[in-house]
């Protein structure tokens, strides 16, 4: 019994490591699915058959499926964007990588810029 427990623990650790160190998302999903299966086996060996049941469905089927769908979706979006970039018709708003952080530091206590750089007051907002 203890040998089986040690073996499954080692397998789970190896599978988990393999998932983390796989770089390609597609391969990672397969790894994650295997990892989920091994986790289910681990729960079974450690006498938690009910947890193993749910882990079997969630870890080995549902989660990989959702990740697969997400990957496929990202790919199709990317392909569409590439397609549009080749024949630029309407400009699309760029989403940069900076995300919600607004970027560089700008202390508000800066000196007044030269007059010619200054923008006219009440810069109109672009219509949405």
């Amino acid at each position: 019994m203890i040998g089986m427990q040690l073996a499954i623990l080692a397998i789970v650790a190896a599978a988990g490591g393999a998932v983390v160190f796989t770089r390609k998302p597609g391969e990672q999903v397969v790894g994650a699915s295997f990892f989920g299966l091994m986790l289910a086996l681990m729960f079974f060996i450690f006498q938690a058959p009910d947890v193993a049941l749910s882990q079997l469905v969630i870890g080995a089927v549902a989660l990989p499926l959702m990740v697969l769908l997400a990957i496929a979706k990202t790919r199709s979006t990317q392909m569409r964007q590439d397609h549009e970039r080749e024949q630029p018709r309407k400009p699309e708003r760029e989403h940069g990588r900076h995300g919600p952080d607004e970027g560089r530091f700008s202390p508000p206590d800066e000196e007044r810029p030269p007059a010619d750089v200054r923008q006219p007051p009440g810069r109109p907002r672009e219509a949405r």
Binding site: E102, R104, S106, P107, P108, E110, P113, V117, Q119
Partner: peptide
């Protein structure tokens, strides 16, 4: 009061808010 825009003219644009 104060300046109308930050000193850096290449300041990253404000986060667009809907």
């Amino acid at each position: 009061w104060g300046l109308r825009r930050p000193f850096d003219s290449d300041e990253a644009p404000a986060i667009p808010m809907e």
